[in-house]
C-alpha cells in the first residue's frame, strides 16, 4: 500500500514533467511554424495551459496518532494506563516554506510543492509515588514532552479549479514524501515533592535533547485540502488549508529503547502516524505570457 502510493507519486511527477516537455516542444514547434497567435486564441489548446512558479509559506499544526503504545516502565502494583501518554491534538504551531511549480490545463492542475517544514507534537504523562501510612511521603511528577520534527517534503497535488475567473476556489488531493532532516524533543518536568518538604508545585528547567535517532528518515502520506486563488495582474495569490494523513510509522522501532535518552523516566515512543493541518499562502508567477493581448492568466 505504502509503496503503491509512493509509486503513484513518482508516476504523477513523471507525467507532469513529461507534459512540460511536450508543452515546451509544442510551444517551440508552433513558434517555428506559425507563431503562437495564428489561431483563434480560445480554441488553441496551447492557450488553455500555463505553468506557474512561486513561493509558499505558512503555519501548521500536528497531532501524533498512536497506533501501538509502548512504555519503558512495566508497573508492578499499578496499571500501565495510570501513566500512559496523553497526546495533545493540533496544539503546537509549526511552520513551513517552499516552492510551488504548477502545470495548469483546462481547470486541472498538477502541482509540485517542495517545502521545508517543522512539525511539532506533544504528549504528557504523570507519575505518582505515595505511602499509604505516611501522607507526606508523596512525589508527583509530570512530564511534558514537545517534539520538533524537521522535514524536507515533496508533495504532489492534483487541483481542480471550480471557476475560471479571477477568484478561483479549488480543491486539491495528493501524496507526499518527506525526508527527516533533524529532530529534537524538549521535556519540562513539574510536580510536587511533599517528601522533601515542598508545599506546592515545582517546575524544573526545560531539557532539550537530540532525537534524530528516535525517528526514521521517511514519512509518506496522502493529503487533501481546499483553497482559493486570486489573480492580481500577472501574479496569483493562493491560500489553502490542507490536511496531511501520514501512512507510516515515523518512530524508529529499533532505537525505541536503545537510543532514547529519556528511557530512564520510562519514556518510549509509541508507534505513531502523523496528522497535520497546514495553512499556506502562496505567490505564483506565470512562466510564459500567452500574448500581448491576452495576459498570462488563463
Amino acid at each position: 500500500m505504502k509503496i503503491n502510493i509512493f509509486a503513484l507519486a513518482l508516476a504523477s511527477l513523471a507525467v507532469m514533467l513529461g507534459s512540460y516537455s511536450e508543452g515546451q516542444a509544442q510551444f517551440k514547434g508552433k513558434k517555428r511554424k506559425n507563431g503562437y497567435n495564428s489561431r483563434k486564441p480560445l480554441d488553441n489548446p496551447f492557450l488553455k495551459s500555463q505553468w506557474w512558479l512561486g513561493f509558499r509559506a505558512g503555519a501548521n499544526l500536528t497531532e501524533a496518532d498512536p497506533q501501538e503504545r509502548y512504555s519503558g516502565f512495566s508497573p508492578i502494583n499499578y496499571t500501565t494506563e495510570e501513566n500512559q501518554k496523553e497526546y495533545g491534538g493540533f496544539e503546537q504551531l509549526g511552520g513551513h516554506a517552499g516552492l510551488e511549480i504548477t502545470y495548469y490545463h483546462k481547470g486541472f492542475s498538477f502541482s509540485f510543492q517542495p517545502n521545508y517544514r517543522r512539525q511539532r507534537f506533544l504528549y504528557s504523562n504523570s507519575f505518582l509515588w505515595s505511602d499509604e501510612n505516611d501522607a507526606s511521603n508523596r512525589l508527583e511528577l509530570n512530564y511534558d514532552q514537545d517534539h520538533q520534527l524537521d522535514y524536507i517534503e515533496f508533495p504532489l497535488f492534483v487541483k481542480y479549479d471550480f471557476t475560471q475567473n479571477t477568484f478561483r476556489p479549488f480543491v486539491q488531493v495528493g501524496v507526499y514524501y518527506a525526508i527527516l532532516t533533524s529532530a529534537n524533543k524538549s521535556v519540562e518536568v513539574s510536580g510536587a515533592d511533599f517528601a522533601s518538604g515542598d508545599l506546592g508545585p515545582f517546575e524544573n528547567e526545560e531539557v532539550i535533547i537530540g532525537a534524530e535517532d528516535l525517528f526514521i528518515n521517511s514519512s509518506i502520506g496522502v493529503a487533501g485540502g481546499i483553497g482559493a486563488s486570486y489573480d492580481v495582474q500577472n501574479t496569483r495569490l493562493v491560500f489553502d488549508v490542507t490536511y496531511r494523513y501520514g501512512l507510516n510509522n515515523v518512530t524508529d522501532v529499533q532505537n525505541r529503547f536503545s537510543e532514547n535518552q529519556l528511557a530512564g523516566i520510562g519514556d518510549a515512543l509509541d508507534d505513531i502516524h502523523l496528522r497535520n493541518i497546514s495553512f499556506t499562502f502562496g505567490l505564483l508567477f506565470p512562466l510564459r505570457f500567452i500574448s500581448k493581448k491576452y495576459d498570462a492568466i488563463n
Binding site: 519503558g72 516502565f73 512495566s74 508497573p75 508492578i76 502494583n77 499499578y78 507519575f127 505518582l128 509515588w129 505515595s130 505511602d131 499509604e132 505516611d134 511521603n137 508523596r138 512525589l139 517528601a195 529499533q254 525505541r256 529503547f257 536503545s258 532514547n260 528511557a263 530512564g264 520510562g266 518510549a268
Partner: peptide, 11 residues
C-alpha cells in the same frame, strides 16, 4: 530489543 524498568509506586 527492549528496556524495562519495573516500577512500584509505593514510596
Amino acid at each position: 530489543s527492549f528496556l524495562r524498568i519495573y516500577d512500584n509506586n509505593t514510596f
